[in-house]
Write a protein that binds this DNA or RNA. Structure first.
Lengths: 202, 202
DNA sequence: TTCATTTTCGGTCGGTCGACCGAATTAAAT
DNA sequence: ATTTAATTCGGTCGACCGACCGAAAATGAA
């Protein structure tokens, strides 16, 4: 293994360990020592590679969010009907919840409440999600005409914040609420399918 | 001041101080000493009145949530048209955000991710919100007929999780997103008004 | 007043935290 | 082979944490 490869491995191990711990013990339960121990690397490597605990978390945030946003973007760029894309998005939600990614991202959002640098990053990434969902909504409006009184931006965000809120419910294991929440979101896919059928291109 | 009154004052001061600090420095920035200092009472009073830091937080959670849920319940029980109630709900959201209550409740939700006792409380309270919103949705369905393919429970949660997600965006100062989010939520009130007009009882 | 109970108080305990340091090790350059 | 720089490592620093203690004060009953 070359020097650079080894260096990168240590870096990745630290990022991976931070993600694992974030899922297991949450943001408040994180510590440099636990991360280093979980990664199986010396404590000092955290400061060497990321400068500080915050630096590590910022890097982790970027890695995790890019992963999700890229996948979602690719999915929406495929040329399936929108209703199928919606079903895929619902399935992604389910998968990401099981894998722990949702937990990681939400932990970072809470970290953002008390850390301006993390907040700025989160804001940029939320902008990315808004742009994606808005463009999807715009395509739907272009094809099927206006949807209620909403602009594409409003529609995109309405969808986004519904998913966001549902994620919160699911993370909290609010069973009574989250079941209906997931069903409601899924049924919206049915509404989209109906819209496609009326336009004759389902 | 009687003995009980003084005792209650100390208790309330601690709860109020915990809320203040939760708004200012977040859950992670809390400490028994800061709370005691902010409240202007000795450190040991926290353990005397609440047994532990967690006990204090559970009490705070109850106080803050009851306040909001009671107000919202009373508002929905008034006999204004639903569209007006919706506008009120949007105004409450705005007020609660400015006052910091939203921040406190969301900080507690974050804490709930890593603390089972807090999580159980949060779950109970989310159930309370679901019940309220579901009954409102049920009334609307009774009066105006089915709304899309949604049950009352699904509709209530759909609304609830949209507000929840919007709160997250607003807390994070995700300006680009939250403006459209707030507008979209408000416009739903317009849709409700239209529904009322069609039924001839707006 | 005397006494028992509740409440308040300052102080301290063991423990964990993030940050940092200087020595040791490794890899590349000459 | 020797030098130089990059990287790894164990260990330690001061700061802060929640929990707890025993003494002291306040309170109400006798």
């Amino acid at each position: 293994m070359t020097r650079n490869a080894k260096q990168r491995k240590t870096r990745d191990d630290l990022l991976s360990a931070a993600g694992t711990l974030l899922r297991e013990v949450g943001y408040g339960g994180l510590s440099t020592r636990k991360v280093a121990e979980t990664a199986g690397v010396p404590l000092s490597q955290i400061h060497y590679h990321f400068g500080s605990m915050q630096g590590l978390l910022l890097a982790l945030l970027e890695v995790e969010n890019d992963r999700l946003l890229d996948r979602q973007t690719a999915m929406y760029e495929s040329d399936r009907p929108l209703s199928e894309k919606w079903v895929m998005a619902c399935r992604y939600l389910h998968d990401d919840l099981e894998s722990g990614y949702v937990r990681v991202l939400h932990e970072m959002m809470y970290a953002a409440l008390s850390d301006v640098e993390i907040r700025h990053r989160i804001q940029q990434q939320l902008d990315g999600w808004k742009d994606l969902l808005t463009s999807v909504a715009q395509q739907a409006i272009d094809r099927y005409g206006p949807i209620g009184p909403f602009t594409a931006g409003e529609l995109g965000i309405l969808v986004g914040q519904s998913f966001l809120g549902l994620e919160t419910l699911l993370l909290l294991d609010a069973v009574k609420a989250s079941e209906d929440g997931y069903n409601a979101i899924c049924k919206i896919g049915g509404l989209i399918a109906e819209m496609e059928r009326r336009a004759g291109d389902g």
